[in-house]
Design a protein around this nucleic acid. Structure first.
Length: 767
DNA sequence: TTAGGCGCTGTTTTT
DNA sequence: CAGCGCCTAA
């Protein structure tokens, strides 16, 4: 029982309380994963069969880590029999086994967000609705939250409130689109992410035998990140656990950051009411961060009204103050981070992999990336476009999907004319109409094109396309997934097309395809538990990759700086953390400041960001940031004011204000060079919009920008783009001066001197 | 049928 | 700024 010795008293209590409902409120860094894994190991040591334990997480990575750690405690291979995985992947697996009950093929396709949007787009088009009014992302959001709330399209249709919301938003037909979307997915043999939850719930409620079967199978259920569960997940867990009631949920209300995905803290608050004797254990000792960091985190989160009272504490050293840095531009912010990393590596012997740069939105990675590259600091960006979402990967995967499931219309549409084979829009449209008329799938139309009267040239290309796909399907019987994928790449001409393209991106795309083929090979060579059939193995490969994100590709030993959104950083920890973009409208995000609930979620997000740091934490913000292609000025984030002053080192922020701003000569910034007009301040003048209409000024031969600090009112100046003009007046603080200049051609403009490249042509005072 | 150019529009977070 | 839809030319 030595595994128990490593636990503190509270942790041990949580591990040993094995029977009956248990809720663990686990603060950040309090050893939550350790408790969960030890608990599972303990159950197994007590004689519980691994097959009877279900553990659900939100990321594959968390699941894998859990599995590995249990394996380590137990030794042997028993841990492999545990059902540990994400909600989505575990349910996908169960649904695959039970698919026929619901009328789905067992090798159903899983649609990712792109597939779903693309299908919605075709549906909206087919319904002759305005595509701007019913934008796929908007419609998908509506449908998604309905499904996550377990509201079927029929119920949606009857729901007064939902209908009214749609009316008010001038999108009254959402419920109709919802209905066709569901029907079409079903026809395509496809489920989207939300369907994996919705249909799992449907399975358990509509088929009592299935419910009973799984209720008895999963005698012990553990749920990680319970604060992030939504109504569907909540209901499923409740159903599954109803017989044994051995449900252990772990969560931290302070880290609930997924309400936009339907998650609700209510599930945590509700838990105690759902069962008669709920044992609650609070883990409040933090093993991760310095006292300083923890104090700041506690202080910040205390501004939230909605929370379960608790106070995280730690035995760790006090540590250093948190450093606040202000820069002039987003590019400077990136440079500061890159320079600080270099400096810290030298001074404190940190490795690259001890740093993380966290931001609110993916778009912010760019300025970081550019500056890290400039300083030759190796890095890796998580999120954004994941490997499996890249075009070239999706193209090849679409072929594989179609081979496994010819009903999959999205896959078919994607590749029917890629590489180009003369089946264009007209043909596809005709086929779609026919499919709808005869109530068959698109594929079924293409299978018998002769009976639908296509022109003979078209007929021929369709037939050879179908023949090709069918020949791949035949291959499935005797060849493994890799052989099929390889042949597909070759015979469709897809690989060749990428090989011929020798541009940088073309080479990357080619390499990506090779990487995909390698991963398929690896998959085929790793035996699966139940020795499933070969075609099923390609099917299961496809199911699995749709649920992968690129956080799952992490090789943790890689010595690189990690860049990711705060959302993606949840559950991770780093010795040194930069939280960048601490500005109003960005963080808290402008989309999330209108209600207390939203704002509190932003604050929890900030709390998550702070608590990722073990020993050093930097917060940065910038006065000027490019957004939407023009320069925006933001105030410092309100959250900064919530940090206790004695834990915050503001020297750097101060220095940045009094020091001259980094000059463009020293660090050329491509954006500024290419578009000098972008330097005019949007919102102040009629800057960039007007700039487009002005005839381009050709700068003088010996044009050389002068030091901005030397400019004064009354000077005659030349601007690279706006031409000659005179400074009327200057305003703004000394380091961010804004000049109003009257240009001969371009008229009156407000120009930020730090960015504009201006040359003095005549000095009134001197001359 | 396809490629290429122009103009509009939008940026939150993700399984 | 970028990605996408729409239009035009070939």
């Amino acid at each position: 029982m030595d595994y128990l010795a490593e636990l503190n008293e509270r942790q041990r209590e949580a591990v040993l309380y094995t029977e009956g409902p248990l809720m663990i409120i686990a603060g950040a860094g309090s050893g939550k994963t350790k408790v969960l894994t030890t608990r599972i190991a303990h159950l197994m040591k007590k004689g519980v069969d691994a097959f009877n334990i279900l553990a659900l997480t939100f990321t594959n990575k968390a699941a894998r880590e859990m599995k590995e750690r249990v394996e380590k405690i137990l030794g042997g291979t028993e841990a492999r029999n545990l059902y540990i995985g994400t909600f989505h992947s575990v349910f996908a697996r169960l649904l695959r086994a039970e698919a026929t009950r619901l009328g789905y093929p067992s090798n159903f396709t899983i649609y990712d967000t792109d597939d779903a949007k693309s299908l919605l787009k075709t549906i909206v088009r087919e319904m002759n609705l305005d595509e701007k009014q019913y934008k796929p992302s908007f419609v998908l959001n509506r449908i998604s939250s309905a499904k996550n709330g377990l509201i079927s399209y029929a119920e949606y249709h009857e729901d007064f409130q939902l209908r009214q919301e749609d009316q008010r938003a001038n999108r009254p037909l959402i419920s109709k689109i919802y209905e066709s979307y569901v029907k079409r997915c079903f026809k395509n043999g496809a489920m989207d992410f939300d369907d994996l939850l919705f249909n799992m719930h449907a399975l358990l409620t509509r088929f009592p035998e299935a419910l009973v079967k799984y209720q008895h199978k999963f005698k012990y259920i553990l749920i990680d990140e319970y604060q992030d569960t939504n109504a569907a997940q909540y209901a499923i867990i409740k159903l599954l656990g109803a017989v044994h009631e051995n449900i252990c949920v772990v969560g931290d209300d302070a880290q609930s950051i997924y309400s936009f995905r339907g998650a609700t803290i209510k599930n945590i608050l509700q838990f105690e009411k759902d069962y008669d004797d709920v044992k609650v254990v609070k883990l409040e000792q933090n093993y991760r961060s310095t006292q300083s960091i923890l104090k700041v985190a506690n202080e910040v989160i205390s501004n939230n009204k909605m929370q379960i009272p608790k106070e995280l504490w730690t035995d760790n050293i006090h540590g250093e103050k948190i450093i606040l840095m202000r820069t002039a531009t987003d590019n400077d912010e990136g440079r500061f981070v890159a320079e600080t990393i270099s400096e810290q590596k030298l001074r404190n012997h940190f490795h690259e992999n001890e740093f993380a740069i966290l931001y609110r939105t993916n778009a912010q990675s760019r300025s970081m990336e550019e500056n890290l590259r400039r300083k030759n600091i190796p890095y890796r960006i998580y999120g954004g476009v994941s490997f499996y979402q890249r075009k070239e990967i999706k193209d090849l995967v679409a072929y594989l999907r179609l081979i496994v499931n010819p009903q999959d219309e999205e896959a078919l549409r994607r590749i029917i004319n890629y590489p180009a084979r003369g089946i264009g829009k007209t043909t596809l449209e005709k086929a779609s109409v026919l499919a709808a008329q005869h109530n068959i799938t698109l594929w079924q139309v293409l299978e018998k094109p002769a009976s639908f009267g296509f022109r003979s040239a078209t007929l021929q290309v369709i037939e050879s396309f179908v023949y090709m796909i069918k020949s791949f399907q035949v291959m499935l019987e005797k060849h493994n997934a890799y052989d099929v994928a390889f042949r597909v790449g070759k015979e469709t001409g897809l690989v060749k097309e990428l090989f011929v393209d020798k541009s940088t991106e073309g080479i990357t795309r080619y390499e990506n395809i090779q990487e995909l083929l390698n991963s398929i090979k690896e998959f085929t060579e790793t035996p699966t538990e139940e020795g499933e059939l070969l075609d099923k193995r390609l099917g299961s490969y496809l199911q699995q990759i749709t649920l992968l994100t690129d956080a799952d590709q992490d090789e943790h030993d890689q010595d690189v700086v990690r860049l990711m959104t705060i959302h993606a950083a949840k559950g991770l920890e780093f010795p040194c953390v930069f939280v960048v973009g601490m500005e109003e409208t960005l963080f808290p995000n402008a989309m999330a400041i209108n209600t207390r609930e939203d704002l509190e979620e932003e604050r929890r997000l900030f709390y998550v960001a702070i608590t990722r740091a073990k020993s050093k934490l930097w917060l940065t913000f910038t006065s000027n940031r490019y957004r939407f292609g023009n320069l925006m000025q933001n105030d410092p984030s309100r959250f900064l004011k919530e940090i206790p002053k004695d834990h915050l080192d503001e020297n750097y922020a101060g220095r940045a204000i009094t020091e001259p701003v980094y000059r463009t000569e020293r660090y050329p910034d491509s954006r500024q060079q290419n578009t000098p007009a972008a330097a005019s301040v949007s919102g102040l003048g009629n800057g960039s919009a007007a700039a487009k209409r002005i005839p381009v000024h050709v700068p003088s031969e010996n044009f050389k920008p002068d030091d901005p600090s030397t400019f004064e009112a009354g000077m005659e100046v030349e601007h690279q783009k706006f031409g000659f003009g005179k400074i009327l007046r200057l305003e703004g603080n000394p380091n961010n001066r804004i000049a109003t200049i009257s240009f001969r051609q371009a008229g009156e403009k407000k120009i930020m001197l730090n960015y504009a490249r201006l040359q003095i042509t005549h000095n009134e005072e001197a001359g």
